[in-house]
């Protein structure tokens, strides 16, 4: 006897028992059996048919008219059966898409480097957490032979898969530039031409690009419409916003950028972020940018990687562990 026959047998027995005794336990049995039906993909019209067969077995003299009415019910259930089958197919498809996205997300993780170069005079910490499976934020760190360091933080606008695909374009473009000899403004201008030619007209990329050169002790930077970060000045024990003008990447092929510079001394910090950090919401209310600084201040005695981890944990809790936007935070601390 296969499972279908077994279920049919059970159904008939339960029905027989219930009609005779009106016992609640039989009803519980019906509930259980309906779960097995669903699991085995039994269609609604098959259940009605099963019911008819069971009735005929229990009441061989079943009134003709009742029997016809049951056949009528059977017909009425057929569309439900079709809908159920469609639902099953959609579920399978959804599962396929999910696993495809999973593969894409894994590939993307490989694009985002996880090993951060170690430097003598700069302690660097970075955290980047996607709100969904795919990350629309990008970061890139390169260490030069002269001990210099280049760091890019970008936000690719346009969510999900298209954003993730653009990320590989930025990565390969950046990898092809001789970054250590190019100025930050020239890098953004070159990247802008690549992006402008290759993305959808409603997409754009914001990027902050910076270099630290130990021989001058200066931090050089340019911004392509990116959410401004902060300097921490240890002498004054104060934060200031990093001011840098510049149009987002991908709008105009002829855009030029400016390079700014800032001297940094031991104890100073550079805080770079994406709008996923400053656009955290507390309930329906946005947090203020100052609030981010207060949280950083609480943890700033820690090593850079610990600071960014703790700040992330703080805002993750604040938003009930539901990020609305990708969150990227980088901190460079001058330690020598």
């Amino acid at each position: 006897m296969d499972t279908k026959d077994l279920d049919a047998r059970n159904y008939t027995e339960l029905l027989k028992g219930y009609v005779k005794t009106r016992d609640e336990r039989a009803l519980y049995g019906a509930e259980q059996i309906s779960k097995t039906f669903i699991k085995n993909n039994i269609l609604p019209e098959e259940i009605v048919n099963l019911h008819i067969q069971a009735l005929l077995e229990i009441y061989p003299e079943l009134h003709d008219k009742i029997q016809s009415s049951m056949n009528f019910l059977l017909e009425a259930m057929i569309s439900y059966g079709l809908a159920h089958q469609e639902y099953q197919i959609l579920r399978e498809k959804q599962f396929e898409i999910k696993s495809e996205i999973h593969v894409a997300a894994r590939m993307q993780k490989m694009l985002l480097q996880s090993n951060i170069p170690k430097l003598e005079d700069i302690d660097l910490g970075i955290i980047s957490v996607p709100a969904n499976q795919m990350n629309g934020d990008y970061h890139h760190v390169v260490k030069g032979k002269d001990g210099s360091i280049s760091i890019a933080i970008a936000d690719i606008i346009g969510k999900g898969i298209p954003a993730a695909l653009s990320m590989s374009m930025i990565k390969y473009a950046l990898d092809s530039f001789p970054e250590n000899i190019m100025s930050t403004d020239a890098i953004l201008a070159s990247l802008n031409r690549v992006v402008e030619r290759n993305i959808d007209p409603s997409m754009f990329i914001t990027m902050f690009y910076a270099q630290y050169k130990p021989d001058t002790g200066k931090f050089y930077y340019s911004s392509a419409g990116h959410e401004p970060g902060f300097f921490y000045h240890s002498k004054e024990n104060s934060f200031t916003e990093i001011e840098a003008k510049g149009l987002v990447l991908g709008v105009n092929p002829d855009t030029t950028y400016l390079q700014y510079e800032q001297e940094i001394v031991k104890g100073d910090m550079i805080i770079l972020l994406t709008d996923g950090v400053t656009e955290c919401r507390k309930g329906e209310q946005f947090i203020e940018r100052e609030e981010v600084l207060e949280v950083i201040r609480t943890f700033m005695h820690l090593p850079a990687q610990e600071i960014v981890n703790q700040v992330y944990r703080y805002f993750e809790r604040l938003q009930n562990f539901q990020l609305r936007d990708d969150f990227t935070l980088a901190i460079l601390k001058k330690v020598v």
Binding site: D155, I157, G158, P201, M203, F204, V251, D275
Partner: peptide, 15 residues
Amino acid sequence: MDSTGLGVFINALKL
């Protein structure tokens, strides 16, 4: 407005 909205205005500007 978020950056997706900004993208629509950029698209409109290009057009």
